[in-house]
Computed example of a mutant assay.
Amino acid sequence: MTALFKNWKFVDLFAGIGAFHVALKDHGAECVFASEINPDAASVYEINHGLKPNGDITKIAAEDIPEHDILCAGFPCQAFSISGRKLGFDDTRGTLFFDIVRIAKHHQPRVLLLENVKNLESHDRGRTFTVMKAALEEIGYRVYHKVIDASDFWTPQKRERIFIVCLRADIQLDHAYFWPMKGVAKYRVDDLVDLGVQRPMKQEYIPEGEFDGRPDRIARVGRFKNGTQGYRVYDPRGLGVTLCSAGGGGGANTGLYMIEGAPRVLTARECARLTGFGDNFSMHPNEKKAVRQFGNSIVVPVLAAIVSTFSLQLDRHYRRTAGIALPAA
């Protein structure tokens, strides 16, 4: 891991269970403030990271937040999600973005690292994202964004999310900003599942075909009822569907997989692995709540790849400004 962030501090807004915390701590940064309004998620965050999150960020003055180098925020996505009502700034959750702007304007951290649903980029024909980008540029940041699929970064979950990296305007890169390269190794759901787990479904299973042998795609092999979301069955030798925190149907949160000859939902620990949290991560004791929390989380390996990539670019900037000879690009 790079040593660049050894003395850097970060804040974790809309922190959830701490995916940003894991990725940045592994790179040497120190979390000095977290905010999470959901008490169950805040409890899991405190148990795992030793820091009690503050509550409602809208009620916290910017000057009461410690100075920091990196501001992280996986701000609420429901206002922009394709599965929601897509109200954007007409939804109070959409306006929480401007609390990020408010805090960043006051503290001027070197980097903002943000995440949201893929649909944010196209919401309201792109006008929503244009407003957001302009607001960030107005307070002094260069904005870079990219939709990234978690299945390209060492986890077998098909999860497309937009990531936004904002660099303070005084940070001058000696080349165009670049994003991490996709991982070479590919994983399948059955690399992460536990055997011997019995979770029989009550409805009648209807087979729809055999696994086509392609581990790089989602392979649907059967269904329950009419096969709507939550009742589709997949082969674990392929990719997993996107974990989610809500929805109808027996497999709405995790998807259903044909494991050891029978379809079942994934366990919370299996969901943790699909999101990049290690087996030493302490989950919420309520299985359903734990599953939903992982469905809400950012995939840790994706964050780790982004952090590692922009740290290399920042390292060149700070070496150059300090008059240290740079290695060849």
Rank of each mutant, 00 (worst) to 15 (best):
D191F: 12
Y187L: 13
A176W: 02
P200W: 03
R220T: 14
M201A: 15
F211L: 04
L195I: 10
G209A: 04
N226R: 10
V197W: 00
D212I: 03
Y205V: 11
Q172Y: 06
V221H: 06
K182A: 13
Y231C: 12
R214C: 07
G222W: 00
V221I: 15
N226Q: 13
G213N: 10
P200K: 07
R188I: 11
D190Y: 14
D190S: 14
A185T: 15
Q203P: 03
D216I: 07
E210H: 06
D194K: 10
D190R: 12
K202D: 01
G196K: 12
P180E: 01
Q229F: 12
Y205H: 02
Q198R: 13
V233T: 08
Y231G: 01
L173Y: 02
P207N: 10
R214T: 09
V184T: 14
A176T: 11
D190K: 12
F224V: 09
H175P: 02
I206K: 14
A219F: 07
K225H: 08
D212V: 05
D194N: 09
P180N: 10
Y177K: 01
M181C: 03
G230P: 01
L195R: 15
L195N: 14
W179C: 02
G213Y: 05
M181Y: 13
A176N: 08
K225N: 11
K202E: 07
K182Q: 14
K186F: 09
K202C: 05
Q229G: 13
Y187F: 13
L192E: 08
V184Y: 12
D191G: 04
P180L: 04
G183F: 04
Y187W: 15
R220H: 08
Q198Y: 14
G230T: 02
D194V: 06
G227M: 02
D190H: 13
E210N: 12
D194H: 08
F211M: 03
Q203R: 08
K225T: 05
D174S: 10
E208P: 00
H175Q: 15
E208H: 04
F211Q: 04
Q203N: 10
D212Q: 11
G230R: 04
V197H: 00
G196Y: 09
G227F: 02
V221R: 00
A185C: 07
R199W: 08
T228Q: 09
D174N: 12
R220Q: 14
P180M: 11
L192G: 07
L173C: 11
A176C: 04
L192D: 02
A176D: 13
K186A: 10
V189G: 00
F178Q: 09
V233R: 00
V184N: 14
Y177T: 01
